[in-house]
Write a protein that binds this DNA or RNA. Structure first.
Lengths: 330, 330
DNA sequence: ATGAAAGCGCTAACAA
DNA sequence: TTGTTAGCGCTTTCAT
């Protein structure tokens, strides 16, 4: 079976290619009768236009690129899900690529996007990526770039991210309100800017309120480490009355320890986390968390992309608000 | 900034387009000196070939399509992750589309794949999809189609899926071996063929072994329902000594109840599940499960795709073996 | 070793 | 209302 083209349809009907092309687009110039004949045959032959030819001819592609460190991650998933949904609704397709947090692969993926002449790029850069220049320069090839989540800090570009400091402050406020006095606060990798922002905000909130709560600050780089750290403190004489988890990763580690030690939440120990909202609902009682919602962020990013495509050449930094979701864990 | 093309490079260097094209491909005909000049300039100008033009010219696309009900799902994610990885390694890009289990959207997505002239399609059809014909016919347009997970039952086509019955049998064997006598077995939607297969296999294993274990069979269609069912039986006089969960969804519901009732696993109650392997590791002790590994299935599917692309026109049904992963929950 | 030319499938300006 | 033509960027056959 050979593919159907405008040419073939035109030959069968004894029309010119352009007439067929116009008829299929419901162009007003073409007579109703001809349109009907063309559309009928196209349907019969199961004609689908060749996107490559259209893209080439029109220098447009109806494709967005999306680069993330990993697909297999609840946050990215929900972000992707939102962007895919919107893309389809607007007649676009999505090319999704994962960098594995490797700047080299990230670069390769970026090239793929360029080669496919995507109309826009959503990208969450890997922490190791130093050189952002090419991404920025990409916009000179009339391609819009929207950075999300982990965004370059000092450059002028389109950014969509969470109110990182806010989330930590909301958590601190809740802890203070609940009159907790001995808090184990587990943060992620010290090098990540997100860790630094959240930690600074978290601490300062206690300081500003002149609160006498004892804060134990720990940094971990995996769920397993979080689990061990939590274990260490929970079996010590000075068992914390509250654990704060900066991320879903730390939360899962901590919850494993609490189950292992048969500590009852919130009576034996309270838990509060910053989370995408999926893991907190797996436990009983559900964990109280400050939401960093990937789906919402995706919608926000897509909105920004649309503006760019519509001709907005300014750069903007959009912030997705943080929201406290009450469970029963504190 | 205007895009760089072969034409531009050729003009700058005073060469013909075809020479530039060959030089960039390291064609033996071209002199070393010319190659050097061309490559240098291409690099300086940051040239990237136009994939649309290449695809159009060569009638090949270096793109695979992938259609799933939802991206935001640990199983699909891990499947996608594997396929994306392999695709990149083989120089392909992936167009990922979600159908939301809606046959109409699935159809639209399928059209997008056709329009983009993907070289191959990975698809997990929605349970509501009745007409598989177009997918099959797609292969007549020299496009390979690989169905995965939820595959059409009676048609001749490329299928990659799990050994559904096996997984249930392995679970039953484990339960029998552990001499459990009062088992609550929670299955998914009765209409799904996967439920039917697993339930039949599970029951028959007990029957075949002449085992006197009391089986309580329940069907649920959400984690919440699983939770409620589990709660009902666990507070009854005849509390089960074991819960079998057919899926991750049921498992998460069950675990919430066990936490709520402060039942200790495995002493108060044992747990065994069929799972993709992510959720079981969130609990302590980790849940013993029979693995249905999306990542492995993705690799398997990709391998099949490669064979098809290499010219294998036979159809085959590949089965990913089930594997017992020991946790401490039974 | 290099160039000229045709053509992939389509759109759109121009002609009739 | 329909057809002719040029051209998007590239590969490839056939000259030279």
């Amino acid at each position: 079976m050979t593919t159907i083209t405008l040419k073939k349809i035109s030959q069968v009907l004894g029309l010119s290619i352009s007439t067929v092309s116009r008829a299929l687009k419901d162009h007003p110039d073409i007579s109703v009768k001809t349109k009907q004949r063309v559309m009928d045959l196209a349907k019969t032959l199961d004609y689908e236009p060749n996107a490559n030819a259209i893209n080439l001819r029109t220098s447009k592609s109806k494709i967005f690129g999306l680069i993330v460190p990993h697909i297999s991650n609840y946050f990215y998933e929900s972000f992707i899900s939102a962007v895919e949904e919107e893309s389809r609704l607007h007649g676009y397709s999505l090319m999704i690529l994962q960098s594995g947090d490797d700047p080299q692969i990230e670069m390769d993926n970026f090239k793929l996007c360029r080669q496919n002449r995507v109309m826009g790029l959503f990208i969450c850069i890997s922490p190791k990526t130093k050189d952002i220049e090419h991404f920025i320069r990409f916009s000179e090839f009339n391609t819009s770039v929207v950075f999300f989540d982990k965004v370059p800090s000092n450059l002028l570009c389109n950014k969509v991210c969470f109110a990182d400091a806010d989330a930590a402050i909301i958590a601190a406020k809740k802890i203070i309100q609940k009159k907790k006095k001995n808090v184990l606060a587990i943060f992620g990798d010290k090098d990540h800017s997100i860790t630094q922002k959240r930690e600074a905000a978290f601490k300062s909130e206690f300081k500003n309120k002149n609160d006498d709560t004892k804060l134990i600050i720990e940094h971990v780089s995996s769920a397993e480490e979080a689990r061990n750290v939590c274990y260490k403190y929970c079996r010590s004489k000075n068992k914390p009355d509250t654990v704060f988890c900066m991320s879903d990763e730390t939360l899962t580690g901590v919850m494993k320890t609490l189950q292992e030690m048969h500590l009852k939440v919130p009576n034996d120990i309270a838990v509060i986390a910053i989370s995408n909202g999926f893991f907190p609902k797996l436990f009983f009682p559900e964990i109280t968390y400050i939401e960093t919602n990937g789906y919402k962020l995706g919608k926000l990013a897509f909105g920004r992309m649309l503006s760019c495509l519509a001709g907005d050449t300014t750069t903007s930094e959009l912030i997705q608000e943080s929201l406290l979701v009450e469970g029963g864990s504190i």
